[in-house]
């Protein structure tokens, strides 16, 4: 009888397990193993090469370039997204005219697929008659090839990311703000607390769990969101806007150097794990959970 129940239990779990192992766990383990083997090519089978792939990586100037790019990209998108989304949430967390419309407007970029967003921004960035250059033209400034020159390509991509995800994070901040009882603000008002003081002494500490959650998400996104790179720059010019995941895709599916792609993937997962765990433990002590 008991055995039968167990069989039923496993059968019910089976579809989920197959998907989970087939698409997550086995590939992950396989990737880790592959990073220590060479890429099979033609009649040359894969051979065990130990740390060779990792050694190659540290000497790879393009890898260093994309790592630097990705760090700059993360260093801007994470704080900028958090700051802008929190500011938007504070702005729409009150009774003002057209509140529903404003909230929707802020949230719209998130609803659009990143590919579509990238295409819209591509028009904004067009040299000469794109939105930005038309505005610059009004002031008599000369056109700029925003995504075509190495000095601005990465920052152009960065702006799109912030625009795309800030609205999403705003929803979390808005929800967090709405859990703060109104009478805390009233009690503080009776004491003569300024809006600024109230934000730093009460609101900010109380929404800290949400800020932590959002910052972890923003970090993951900084390494995960590369759709717009495909549409807008393909990592160019001269790898100026290439990010780590984009480079992995290039190596794995354009050059079919699967072993090297696996090595890069392991590095990315390790970086993400360290940052994620670090954020959690470092901030957790300063976060107030009710």
């Amino acid at each position: 009888m008991i055995k039968r129940e167990w069989i039923h239990a496993w059968l019910l779990l089976l579809p989920a397990l197959v998907l989970l192992f087939g698409f997550t766990h086995i590939p992950a383990v396989q990737t880790f193993i592959d990073s220590f083997w060479s890429t099979p090519r033609g009649r040359r089978p894969s051979t065990f090469v130990g740390w060779d792939n990792y050694a190659r990586m540290t000497a790879d100037p393009v890898f260093l370039r994309v790592m630097t790019n990705n760090l700059i990209y993360a260093a801007i998108t994470i704080p900028a997204s958090i700051a802008i989304s929190l500011w938007m949430a504070l702005f729409v967390h009150r009774r003002i005219m057209g509140l529903g419309f404003l909230r929707m407007a802020y949230f719209t970029p998130t609803v659009l697929p990143l590919i579509a967003v990238a295409n819209i921004w591509l028009f904004f960035y067009l040299p000469g008659f794109g939105l930005f250059d038309q505005i610059r033209g009004l002031f008599g400034l000369r056109p700029v090839n925003w995504i075509g020159q190495p000095s601005t390509a990465l920052y152009s991509i960065t702006a799109v990311t912030v625009w795309n995800q800030a609205g999403f994070f705003m929803i979390f901040f808005l929800a967090a703000l709405q859990t703060i009882p109104e009478n805390l603000r009233e009690a503080a008002a009776l004491e003569g607390t300024s809006r600024w003081t109230f934000f730093w002494r009460v609101t900010w500490p109380l929404i800290m769990p949400t800020t932590l959650f959002v910052s972890v998400n923003a970090t993951i996104n900084a390494f995960r969101m590369v759709d717009h790179v495909f549409v807008m720059t393909q990592g160019g010019p001269n790898n100026a806007s290439a990010l780590l995941l984009y480079y992995i895709y290039d190596q794995g599916f354009r050059f079919w150097d699967t072993a090297y792609a696996a090595t890069l993937t392991v590095v990315m997962v390790v970086i993400l794990a360290i940052i994620g765990i670090g954020q959690f433990f470092l901030l957790d002590r300063r976060v107030h959970y009710r």
Binding site: A189, L190, G192
Partner: peptide
Amino acid sequence: PAERDLSMVFQSYA
């Protein structure tokens, strides 16, 4: 409220 020289205790204590 702050300039009224009064204090208040809320139902939920706040």
